[in-house]
Structures are given as C-alpha cells and as structure tokens.
Design a protein around this nucleic acid. Structure first.
Length: 576
RNA sequence: GCGCCCUUAGCUCAGUUGGAUAGAGCAACGGUUUUCUAAACCGUGGGUCGGAGGUUCGAAUCCUCCAGGGCGCGCCA
C-alpha cells in the first residue's frame, strides 16, 4: 500500500476520463506528475502538481486547471475531507478518517509493508569487500562491507534474489610478497632469523606471526628452506589463513557472504585467455602503445607495444593494458575474466561495491562488462567514500607500513556491531564520514542508533505492560477510529515508508533508511512526551487496558522500525 | 594534466525522478520526571544552499563555466 502510487493512479484515471470528454488535453508523457506530502503549514495530507504540469500544454493558468481537476477529484474519491488549491497551482487534499482506517487495515499485519512488489523478480550478484587476502580487515573496509550487505538486504526486502560474493585476489605480486612475508616469519619462528622489517615490499604486521605459527603447527611436513619450492603450497595455506581472519571479521560485523570466488581459479581455468579471445573476435582488443599519465614522474615510463582493451570505445580516457611486461595478465585482465564468469552465471544485474581508492577503476570495468554483454547498465558500481577516524578529538591516521591500523576487531570490541553499522549507514555513501569513537560509544541522543532503538523499546514496554506480545498479529474487528492531529502526523510519516524504500532501492542508497527511522522516532518520542500533560495521549488507561486505535497505532510504528532495522542488520531490543 | 566524489547554520550532516517559508543533530541559553522507559521532550537564536551564468511557471536539486577540499590515475591489486 503506497499512497503516492495509489493517488497518482487515481489522478491519471481521472485525467484520462476528462481527456476523453474533451475537458483537458494530455501530453504523451505524464511522468512529471507527482504526489507528495505538503509542508505542515497547509494542514493537508497529500498534494499534487498536476495542474502546473498541464498548464502549458493546455494553455491555461494552473489555477484554472486546478479548479477543474479538484472538483473531478473530489467527485471520484470518497476519502477526501477537504480539497484546496494553493498558489502557484498545487492541489492539496485532506484525507478523512475512512482513509486512515482503510490504510491501517491494509498494513496492520503486513510484515512486508514498504516492500516494492514488482512483478518480475530479478537475480542480483552483489560483489563487495573483496579485500586482498593479506590480513584481517580494517576500519576502511568495514564501510563498504556494511554498504554491500545492506544493499543486499534491501534488494531482498523487495523480494529480489541476491547472491553476495567476495572476490579473493589470491594471485599476483601482492600475494607473492605476502607469502614471502609468511615464509620469513616462519623462519623467524623456526630459526630465529630476524624478519627484514625495513623491506617495503613485505607485510610487517604482527598477525603474520600468528599465521606463520598456525601453518607450521598444522603442516609438520612443510620445510621452510627454499621459498620457490614451497611457494605454491604456502600461498594456498597463507591465503586460507587470511580468509579465516577475514571471515571472522565479517561475522563480527554481521556479514555472511554466499560465495567466495578466487582469482587463481579464474586464471588456472584459462578464463582469461578465453575472454580475451572473445574480445579479440569482437575487435575490442588490439596491440598498441599507451602514454604515461600527465603530471607525474615519467622517468620510469617504458613505452612498448602491448595488448590493450579498447575501453575508450565506452568513454574511458585511455585504453587499458591487459598484459604485463613479462606477458602475465594484469589485474584488470583477470578481473575482466571474472566479470565474464559472472555474466555466464546469468544474473540479471551485477552490483560492485568499491572503496573510494578504486573509484577510478569503475569506467574500465563497466566498459568491459558492456563489451562482453552488449548491455549498457548490466553492472552498477557503488563507491563507499573514506572513513575519517577521530579518536580523542584528533584525526587518527592509519599506516599499513607500520602495521598501525585499527582492525574490525578493535572496532567491534570498542563500539559494537550495531552502532558501527548504524553510524556508517547514516551518511550518504558518496560523502566522507567522520567516525568519532567517543561519540559512537555514547549512549544518548547523540547516538542515533540508541534513539531509534529506544523508540522501539518504549513501544515494547507498552506491550509488556498490557501483557501482549509485540510480535503477534493484531486482530481488530472494526476499523472505525478517529485519530488526533498529532497521531495523523505520525501516520503520514508511516505513509512515507514505501517511498523511502523505493528511492533507497532505486538509487542503491541505504542511508535513507536510518535517516527516515530517526525522523519517525523523533515524532514518536515527541508524541510520547505529550502523554505527560494529556492523558488522552497515553497508551495505557487507568484500568490497565488499551484502546484498539492506540494499539494499532503502536503496532504500525513498531513494524516499520523493526523492518527498517532488519534491513540495516541492527537489533531492536525490547528493553534498554 | 585527466577522472570520480564533496562544498547547505559555528561544527557534523539530511534534503535529486525540479515544487510551496531549505531541515535535523551537536554546540549555547532557558525549561519539563508523584503518570506507559528522561537513552526522552519543549522553547530561543542561527542560512548569499561555494561563485557566476543558463534551462522554466518554479532550481539546493538539471546544464555550462569557475573556485576550494578529498580520492585516484604507470604492465599494484
């Protein structure tokens, strides 16, 4: 039940009839007609811009059209108490009590209220995190991880089919350096050799000692004499250890992937060769030269003939290299193969969540997917911007070099899963985020998580006091209530929930959900406090009973909060 | 040099399929608890929506240009 759609459909029906009767001329495209909630001062529930949109094509003033339409609307809708026209031509509707009773009756026990019920269910592959398997996740990874998880939840809430995937980059130079670091840490343990801490290629973090120790303990036959001899085996073991750590981190954040795809498998199965052959056949690959980037030190630049992907055909600023100097594949080449692999698994839509530092990569990979699929918007990439850590009022800089960074484990231990998720989701993913440790820990209004949870807890306390289970369906025989103006303000907010979900889904912007939940909670807290002076606004009466209208009211609000918090992956405790 | 993101109140930020007087929180000041959870509420002040053009009935929102900040750009992943 989306009242905006409900009224747009209604208005368009009326327009079509009026058009047939020759009362009004209709342009082809009616998309700019919309229905909204008007500002509070008009004391109305719904407004539409239809008269202004039709003004020009009809060569009449908006007010004139509004007058014609408003009488038609009024005749055709039994839910209208009052209809007014406001300059410059808005039509404002005030809905009667039958409407609110109808609405509440529709949604009271609908656990999926707000869900976008589309006819065709689509399959999505959401790839996120995909951090290099060279150690545990740090705070920077967690924002994208949470974003991807909640986008998946959001799609699922709308009854779409979602696979959550992690792409393990277990191939290439960084992994080689990582394995070498494990090797040297192992020798440090076994032979007391000093780890070359100053070698900038190696990974200095302490966690490598533990990884090395685990590998030694579990593989007594492995000899740490010659790196080249055990390199392949040790890579596998080291990556496995890393993935183990990463999975623990993800679990602590409340995230479980459905699938882990590995780069090494893509390479071993010759998928890179295959995809490049396909692109060659389609004339998207050629041998040529590319220029060094402007404004940087070009002294090390070696110009050479190389295998290039024609991403400029799709709007990229240069073509992209597929092969390294030694003829091995670039990261991009295997990623193209990986995306071809995704395409062959026949998903309707692909979504990638990337960190800000990989944003420059989007153009070339969407180009590749377009070249391979022939579809323009098959792949959507969302970027999670930087997280600026603030500790003790000062920015906290992480340095991978020194192994000096805040891990997900530190984060969860210090602020907890729910607060982390809520705060990280409370901002647009396109904007940088200040993450202030002391504030996130604070149990007050400063922390929007507790504010929303407290709203749910307050509602729960009413249910507890009247000895009802908040999760049970509400059975009401007769929907005939008259809500006060203060209550209708909140009911109006409730009607916005489907719209919030719609926009959040369409734009893949889950931050709209915590923002909405905060606003709804704010209105509820405000109402709650009115009960102090005005007994009619209290929920429980002197005889410890509750009226039907009140319990319906509470149930609706708690349903919305609960389903919103579920999408966010955050708890709704009944007591705080 | 190029690409992406950001610029809205003192601070941190919401606000886009273009809508009516641009909203929250924090900070400041003053109030609210014999009554369902005060982790709450109420009130007061605070704005050239970075700048300049354009598009139109109407622009924080769309287009162009400019400025400032961030991230990134090599056969690293």
């Amino acid at each position: 039940m989306n009242i905006f759609k409900f009224y747009i459909d209604k208005i368009i029906d009326i327009l079509k009839t009026a058009n047939k009767e020759g009362l009004i001329y209709l342009p082809e495209n009616l998309n700019s007609i919309n229905v909204d909630i008007p500002p509070p001062k008009f004391n109305c529930d719904i407004s539409t811009n239809v008269a202004m949109v039709l003004s020009k094509p009809n060569n009449k003033s908006p007010i004139e059209i509004a007058e014609t339409l408003s009488s038609l609307i009024k005749e055709n809708d039994k839910y209208i108490e009052k209809i007014t026209i406001e300059k410059p031509g808005f039509i404002n509707l005030k809905l009667n009590k039958d409407f609110w009773n109808f609405l509440l009756h529709e949604i009271i026990n609908d656990k999926e209220y707000g869900s976008q019920k589309t006819k065709n269910q689509k399959t999505y592959l959401v790839e996120f995190v995909s951090a290099n398997p060279t150690g545990p996740l740090h705070v920077g990874h967690s924002r994208g991880a949470i974003l991807g998880d909640v986008i998946s939840n959001l799609l699922k809430f709308n009854n779409q089919k979602v696979t959550k995937e992690y792409y393990v980059n277990d191939y290439g130079n960084q992994i080689l350096h990582f394995t070498k670091s494990v090797f040297l840490r192992a020798r440090e343990i076994l032979y007391k050799e000093k780890f070359p801490i100053d070698n900038p290629d190696l990974y200095p973090g302490d966690y490598l000692k533990q990884i090395a120790k685990n590998i030694i303990d579990q593989n007594s036959d492995l000899k740490f004499n010659n790196f080249d001899e055990i390199s392949k085996n040790l890579t596998n073991l080291s990556v496995k250890e890393s993935i183990k750590l990463i999975k623990i981190n993800l679990n602590n954040l409340g995230i479980v992937h459905d699938n882990f795809a590995t780069e090494s498998e893509i390479v071993q199965n010759n998928e890179v060769e295959n995809v490049i052959k396909k692109l060659q056949n389609d004339k998207f690959v050629y041998t040529g030269k590319i220029n060094a980037p402007e404004g940087e030190d070009k002294s090390n630049w070696i110009e050479r003939e190389q295998l290039l992907f024609k991403s400029t055909d799709f709007g990229d600023d240069k073509d992209r290299s597929l092969q390294k100097y030694d003829k091995s594949w670039t990261y991009f080449a295997s990623d193209v193969a990986y995306h071809y692999n995704k395409l062959n698994r026949k998903y309707d839509m692909l979504i990638n969540i990337l960190g800000a530092d990989h944003a420059g990569y989007i153009k070339r990979i969407t180009s590749a997917v377009e070249a391979l699929s022939g579809e323009k918007n098959k792949l959507t990439c969302k970027v999670s911007q930087l997280v600026k850590l603030i500790k003790d009022g000062k920015p906290f800089k992480m340095s991978k070099r020194k192994g000096d960074y805040i891990t997900v484990e530190d984060l969860i231990n210090e602020v907890g899963k729910d607060a982390t998720r809520f705060i990280m989701l409370n901002r647009s993913n396109d904007a940088e985020l200040d993450f202030d440790f002391s504030k996130v820990k604070e149990k007050s209004k400063d922390n929007p998580l507790y504010y929303v949870q407290y709203c749910y807890a307050r509602i729960s306390s009413v249910f507890r006091n009247i000895k009802q289970n908040i999760n049970d369906d509400i059975i009401i025989s007769n929907y005939d209530f008259k809500y006060s103006n203060e209550e209708i303000i909140i009911l109006k907010k409730i009607t916005e929930w489907p719209k919030c979900i719609e926009i959040a889904t369409e734009k893949l912007e889950p931050h709209r959900i915590p923002v909405y939940l905060y606003e709804l909670s704010s209105e509820f807290h405000s109402y709650w406090n009115m009960g102090k002076n005005d007994p009619s606004k209290r929920f429980i009466e002197k005889n410890n009973k509750i009226k039907d209208d009140k319990i319906v009211f509470l149930k609706i609000i708690s349903n919305v909060i609960k389903s919103g918090m579920n999408i966010l992956g955050v708890e709704t405790p009944e007591k705080m």
